[in-house]
Simulated scan of single mutants.
Amino acid sequence: MSRVAISSGTHPVPVLEFLRRQLNGTLKEGDVTHMRYPTAISQLLGFRIVEIGEGTAVLQFEANAEIHGNQQGTVHGGLLCELADAAIGTAHSTLMQEGESFTSIDLKANFLRPVWVSTLRASACASHRGRTISHYQCEIRRNEDNKVVGTVESVVMTLRGDAAKGR
């Protein structure tokens, strides 16, 4: 269930603190943040935040080519991009203040090995944090052998004022 500050009786907290409380099970009734967590797409696909920090995030996902497959019978590369984008977005959201939002403006993926059935971990971190433009790197690894299955780089733009409204 998404908790967004919309009524009295709520306790607004910064995104990073909200996600830390959500992750460690100490989120209280009324705790809200100005962004939506968990996101709708993460709920739909079953992505879970397993680690969170300032400008960093690790998401985990149970991938299975029987459900998430492409024509070749492996997990679809677009799903790996979505997992990385979710990790990058979560990492960047930890830097957002009330009245700020963001959008991805670039994403480049490198697929290194196929996946059939695996628990995947996407680890995202900021490689450059600018006031408006930030750069992120994300590695997607298989839990069972820690091998990298893909890398993703993304550029994210922070939005403020009117540009952030409704986004």
Rank of each mutant, 00 (worst) to 15 (best):
S104C: 05
R131P: 00
G99M: 02
M96W: 04
I133P: 02
S93Q: 11
V115W: 00
K108T: 07
L95A: 13
T103R: 02
W116Q: 04
C125W: 00
S134Q: 06
S104L: 09
A91L: 08
Q97V: 10
A124N: 03
T103D: 05
H135Q: 14
L107Q: 10
Q137S: 13
A126V: 06
N110F: 05
L95P: 01
E139G: 07
M96Q: 10
R131V: 09
L112K: 04
R141T: 06
H135K: 13
C125R: 14
F111W: 11
L95I: 11
E98D: 12
M96V: 10
I105L: 06
T94R: 05
L120Q: 01
R121W: 02
S134W: 01
E139P: 03
A124I: 04
Y136Q: 02
T119E: 11
F102T: 10
L107H: 06
V115Y: 01
F102K: 04
E98A: 15
T94Q: 10
E139T: 11
A109S: 15
P114E: 13
I140R: 00
W116P: 03
L107S: 01
T119I: 12
G99C: 00
A122T: 06
S101C: 03
I140H: 03
R131S: 14
N110T: 14
L95T: 15
C138T: 13
D106I: 04
S123G: 00
S101N: 15
T94V: 05
E100W: 04
P114C: 03
S134G: 15
G99Y: 06
G130C: 08
R141S: 07
T94K: 07
S104I: 01
L107Y: 06
L120V: 04
D106C: 02
R141W: 05
R121K: 08
F111S: 02
G130P: 09
R113D: 00
S127L: 09
L120T: 00
I133R: 04
D106V: 02
V117F: 02
A126S: 15
R121S: 05
H92A: 14
I140Y: 04
I133E: 10
E100G: 09
T103F: 00
S134E: 04
S127W: 00
S127Y: 00
E100I: 09
M96T: 14
Q137R: 13
K108D: 07
P114N: 10
H92K: 06
S118V: 01
I105Q: 11
P114K: 12
V117Q: 14
L112Q: 13
C125N: 12
R131Q: 10
F111A: 01
W116E: 09
Y136A: 12
T119W: 06
G130F: 00
R142C: 13
C138F: 05
C125A: 11
R142V: 08
H128C: 05
T94P: 09
Q137N: 14
Q97K: 15
A122E: 10
R141V: 00
I133Y: 01
T94C: 07
D106G: 09
H92L: 10
Q97H: 11
R129Q: 15
R129N: 08
P114W: 03
T132R: 13
R121V: 11
A124M: 01
F102D: 05
R142E: 15
S127R: 09
R131T: 15
N110V: 10
H128E: 14
R121E: 12
L107P: 08
L120D: 04
K108Y: 02
T94W: 05
T119K: 09
Q97S: 13
R113K: 10
V115L: 03
R129L: 14
T132C: 08
H92T: 05
T119S: 07
T132Q: 14
R142I: 02
